[in-house]
Design a protein around this nucleic acid. Structure first.
Length: 103
DNA sequence: AGTTTGACTGGAG
DNA sequence: CCTCCAGCCAAAC
């Protein structure tokens, strides 16, 4: 790990994800950057996939850079659609409209 | 300590 | 739109 407390990293990831408003999404890379790890998108993915059952984190609002849903997690698309996220034909988030703009 | 793996990324075919 | 490939980096094995 890059830092002595990876737990802090996980905590920050959860915090950022919890702040994503309904109908909006963020990419792994964006979350990584927000918590101070610009090149650790995979670590974000690992953090979210390792979350304990019953967590209150809307991890489904995090998608990959192409606006694609996780390959091993088909339910994600349905969850997003239920919140009003716009999807293209084959399961692509319309990032242009739904990516959370922090600027 | 070396190898494999992955809820990634971006580009090419 | 889909798959494959190379680059990437920390965790898991």
């Amino acid at each position: 790990m890059l830092r002595p407390d990876i737990e802090q990293f996980y905590k920050e990831v959860c915090e950022v994800v919890c702040h994503i408003p309904e109908g909006k999404v963020l990419t792994y890379g964006d979350v990584a950057r927000l918590v101070g790890y610009p090149c650790h998108s995979r670590l974000v993915a690992r953090a979210l996939s390792s979350l304990p059952a019953g967590h209150h984190v809307p991890a489904w609002r995090v998608v990959n850079s192409q606006g694609r849903t996780a390959p091993c997690w088909p339910q994600q698309q349905a969850l997003l659609e239920a919140e009003g996220v716009v999807f293209r034909k084959a399961g692509f988030v319309e990032m242009k409209a739904c990516r959370w703009q922090l600027l």
